[in-house]
Computed example of a mutant assay.
Amino acid sequence: MTSQPHADADAPTASAQSSPVSTQKSANAEKPVGSALTIVLLATVALAMKGLLAKFVYATGMTVDGLLLLRFLIAMPFFWLGVMLFGKQRPGDRKMQPVDLAWGALYGGLFFLASLFDFTAVSLIDVTVSRIVLFTFPAVVMILEALHKRRFPPFRQVVCFVVTYIGLMLVLAPGGFDMVSGGLWYGAAWAFGSALTYACYLYFGQRMIKTIGSMHFAALINTMAGLSMVLYELVVQKPLNLNPAGITWTAGISIFCTVIPFFLLYEGIRRIGATQASLISLSGPAMTFFAAWLFLGEILTVPQMIGFAVVTLGVASLKNSFSLAGLGRLLARPFAPNTKP
């Protein structure tokens, strides 16, 4: 219409009308990314509490297998309840189809293996070393993306990983690696196996998240992982040592440290992708140590406190610059006033 002579007379009016629309579109384009960062951060905080509560479970005498099996079984109905109540508000590109069950079984099996390898590593080596090795999975995700898309990762993602991992080493190994227990390489191999399987599941599963929706994906994957755990337990037949107190703690882990954060995490992945979401989740171990200091009275050393600050700034750098103002803008997003007309 701009080619018509009389359009110039209406230009101010059209401009006035299109400006709010353009501004609104720009705001809508910016909002999903910013809110996704907040969503993944909230999921990371909830997931970080999992290890903290697991200490109370083990104190009751329950085994790792008992905790894992019960956690999956308790979480299953709550995942599907969430789908029934809120799934229509978080749709995917299409409805779930029979072929999705096969892919769900594959990704659920990978998630089950990642959990099993992780807990095996913790039983063999010091938890500090296992956390450091396990949280190489964002690097594996970046490598998978680089190989898959045949391009080098964006500079900001590389910087985020390097800075955050330096902070992790300060938080998790302030005394150096010479303080760890024996059998390091054997246990580290199990931890890296967990990182590898988790990274594969996270990266290749993100397409399915967009296809069937984050809530359906969360319910399907955890159901398949639970079924894998049941089959595994039927084969190995390890003791579970179930007891009322342990079941109660495990129920809390299943709901508040599994169902809710997984819904949040997968929704974040749907919006910003697995690579950025995995980088944000690097703050998880530091949050675990901070929670242990806050609730259990464990002391954080000066290097650990510095490391925690570095981890926080590293995560904030993914969206903002290395500044307190940038971190403030990120964390203030959930409390920003609604500017919609």
Rank of each mutant, 00 (worst) to 15 (best):
P244N: 01
V133K: 06
F322C: 01
Y165W: 10
L296T: 00
G175S: 04
L242M: 12
A291F: 15
N222I: 03
L184N: 05
R270I: 01
A332C: 04
A11E: 09
D10M: 13
Y58G: 06
T63N: 08
P12F: 14
Q17A: 13
F295H: 06
M49P: 03
F72N: 08
P285E: 05
G51M: 07
S115R: 01
A27I: 05
T312S: 03
T60F: 10
P303A: 09
M229E: 02
V133Y: 13
E267P: 01
L327M: 13
I280L: 02
S22M: 13
G187N: 01
S115L: 09
G252V: 14
H216A: 05
L330Q: 12
G182S: 11
P261T: 14
S228C: 11
T120W: 13
P153C: 03
R333A: 05
A277R: 03
V133A: 10
G273E: 06
A173V: 03
G297E: 05
Q97I: 15
G307A: 05
T60M: 04
K31C: 00
T301P: 08
I39E: 14
E298C: 02
Q237V: 10
N222R: 00
A291T: 06
A309Y: 00
D178L: 02
A291K: 02
A54K: 06
G109D: 06
G176S: 04
I132R: 05
V40R: 03
E233A: 05
F137R: 01
G109P: 06
Y186D: 04
G307W: 01
H6F: 15
V159F: 13
S254L: 10
L330S: 07
Q4C: 09
A195W: 09
G51E: 07
F308C: 03
Q237S: 07
G246V: 03
S19V: 09
Y266T: 12
A14S: 09
T250R: 06
K210S: 10
Y58N: 07
R131E: 13
V259M: 14
Q4Y: 15
M142I: 08
V230P: 01
V99L: 14
F152Y: 08
T38M: 12
T248V: 06
P154Q: 06
M287C: 01
V21M: 13
I306A: 10
N320D: 10
L116A: 11
Q304M: 14
V235G: 02
G109R: 03
I209S: 04
A219Q: 00
V310I: 15
L134C: 11
M96R: 11
L147Y: 07
Q206L: 02
V180K: 01
G297C: 03
F155D: 04
F335A: 07
T223H: 00
A59S: 08
W103P: 02
S115D: 11
Y58I: 05
P91N: 10
G297Q: 04
A9K: 12
V127F: 07
G92W: 07
